[in-house]
Design a protein around this nucleic acid. Structure first.
Lengths: 380, 380
DNA sequence: CAGTCTAGTAAGGACTCTTGCCTAAAGGTG
DNA sequence: CACCTTTAGGCAAGAGTCCTTACTAGACTG
């Protein structure tokens, strides 16, 4: 809409950005290689590299080309540019990594948590992991991307407790916990959204710009990808399907989460789904189990009718501890075949997908942080 | 992500774009005014204006400044740059306009249609309107933006007949109908999506980036705006809520459209809602009418639970012939107050909103067509 | 050891943007 | 009416960026 103001500084910034981006894709390159890869002339690249070296964003690695011809110098991103923290918080524990702008993992810390550890323990584990990774890596932790197994408030990054939804990780404020260890922004989103991003980039829906990812585990979650981007809505609560009205076992309209109460599939004194019991039923072949499967398929079919109405996905991905069970998928497909509108289903393909998705975002964000650092004033 | 390649041509293109954009916002300006408004220096503007004049995109209007100081020449976009066709097709008739890049309406044609005219009549009316507007205006019709009161296939722009949904306008292929009269692209979307855009820009949800617009008329439609953009999904069927499962009059789960059958609110031998009868009931105060209102509120509440789950709107806008009825809104609000999650409601504010929304898009698209015409090869 | 190949540099040209100054023409002022 | 002020537009100079071409330095090849 609004075109940037033309200026020579803009050109310079563009050249530098091209150089930095290509150095993020290939960790070490000579000036000549940068020139051919970017399509910019060698002299211009030389000037840019000099500029970036003076700004300490790029360094001569000391390595030299071997082979025919004159010896070239390899350049790379400066090592002290820092890393991004990637963290996943689940009831099982905290997994944290540091990644650099090239997407290389520089260290990983795993901390197991007790089943009823509470948010203090989670916060402590996250803080400790950040401190350790920050100490280990060459530069500072410049930003953090956090995945949490609960709804996340889009504005503040804090976890939200919705009525009738299990609160797995609990009242946690990742930006506050990480404020000391991380110098820049802290981006928080729930695990299902990150998992959807991972499936989009590396999993079973590559190239599908519009899809819905339904996560079925202890909690019931969903992610909506529209036009290639994870949609979060006003408060970040897109995909919170617990209160969605759907069809219950006897055809009554009821909230999705109530279906599990009606089927006696909840964990004691909790709104969490009893996953072992449910998996057990999915593996059983008697008529009672069959009835439960039908009821589940019908309830999930109702959820999918809502997904079709509000997201119009090309595909629906089913993930989570019991979501990708073949017998469940078969039952849902059968149900959909009798519905007026249908949609292809596929099973989630990745393990630890939320970390993959969060990592991708972290790398992207770190890259743009570095590029903007080269020309703080120029904007477009 | 990928930065454009720096080049002097890019700078030139950027300058020209700045000039063209400012001339689209203010119909006539002197070189000096362009310079101050864009923040670019006078000599640069002079060169750009010369270039654009040679390319016949800009003309000296012949007008001269009056007042103190040297007389300046006013420049403006060339008049033959053409216009965009904006058309709305409803069962009542066709309304078509030509708009230029400054958003000025250059002519309007209204054609009434008989209640059961069929798509041939609609196609003919559309074609005739386009031919007339194309003949009247100075330049060609360079693109068209069409609003139709039916679902639109995102890939082809053709209207789609979904099962159990009324097919108001019918099997129409606007791109084919307009191929002769319009030189460029034909963008088609359904009226509810355009109406949502209009409410976003000029109506009751200005500045609200995430909202849902529920249109309740003969057909049941919905638009989802996420991050400030109307979301269409894979096939363009976002908002087709007819088959969404919700709660029926007796608490049974049923498709939204079936609720109207159950309440005997359909027009004879059709799936269209009987709007006069429904409005009548909304205005009545006996217990039977009250029961119908309750049932409607419950069914719409179910639809809104799906909207909350999949779009997380900040606000829900209710529009259409019976959607903004105060008594209906009150009934829905009462229902929502008892639900675990709620959302503010507001009534649609605009008349003929679909034309307003389509017009905005047409102006935007025409502007970018003109800007790109100035530098066909440069891309960024 | 001459030939070949390649990274990096130097020179020159083309082009764009900016600053500053100048001119022309109109309105206002005494 | 003469003069000053104001404003649009043009011109010149200068700085900066990118590109092409040509060259140099150094290492491998045969």
């Amino acid at each position: 809409m609004t075109a940037p103001k033309p200026s020579l500084e803009l050109l310079r910034a563009l050249t530098d950005e091209n150089v930095l981006r290509v150095l993020m894709a290939h960790d070490r390159l000579t000036r000549a290689e940068i020139a051919t890869r970017t399509g910019i002339s060698k002299p211009t690249i030389s000037e840019s590299v000099q500029r970036l070296e003076r700004a300490r964003l790029v360094v001569d690695t000391g390595e030299r080309t071997t082979g025919r011809g004159r010896v070239g110098s390899y350049y790379a991103l400066a090592p002290h540019l820092g890393t991004a923290l990637v963290a996943s918080i689940t009831p099982q524990g905290v997994v944290a990594e540091a990644v650099d702008a090239l997407g290389r993992t520089r260290g990983q810390v795993r901390t197991a948590l007790h089943a009823d550890a509470g948010q203090e323990a989670a916060a402590e584990a996250l803080g400790a992991a950040a401190a350790r990774l920050g100490g280990e890596s060459a530069g500072p932790l410049r930003l953090a991307v956090v995945s949490a197994a609960d709804p996340v408030d889009r504005a503040t990054g804090r976890l939200v407790h919705l009525p009738d939804a299990p609160f797995l990780v609990g009242e946690l404020d990742p930006p506050a916990v990480l404020a000391g260890a991380v110098t820049g922004p802290v981006l928080v989103d729930n695990d299902v959204n990150w998992a959807a991003r991972a499936e989009y980039e590396h999993g079973c829906v590559q190239g599908v710009d519009d899809f819905v990812y339904l996560h079925l585990g202890e909690g019931l979650g969903c992610a909506v990808v529209g036009d290639g981007v994870v949609r979060r809505g006003h408060g970040g609560l897109v995909g919170e399907v617990a209160h969605l009205y759907t069809a219950g076992p006897d055809g009554q309209a009821m909230a999705f989460t109530e279906v599990f109460a009606a089927l006696d599939l909840r964990r004691n004194s909790s709104t969490a789904v009893d996953v072992p019991k449910l998996l057990d039923i999915l593996d059983t072949s008697d008529t009672r189990a069959e009835r439960v499967r039908l009821a589940l398929a019908r309830a999930i079919g109702g959820v999918l009718s809502a997904a079709l109405a509000f997201a119009d996905p090309r595909t629906v991905v089913l993930g989570g501890p019991w979501g990708s069970h073949p017998r469940l998928i078969a039952a849902i497909e059968e149900h959909l075949a009798r519905s007026p509108r249908s949609v292809p289903l596929s099973a989630a393909a990745l393990t630890l997908p939320e970390l993959t998705g969060a990592r991708a975002r972290a790398v992207e964000e770190l890259a743009s942080l570095i590029v903007r650092a080269a020309h703080p004033t120029t904007q477009w």
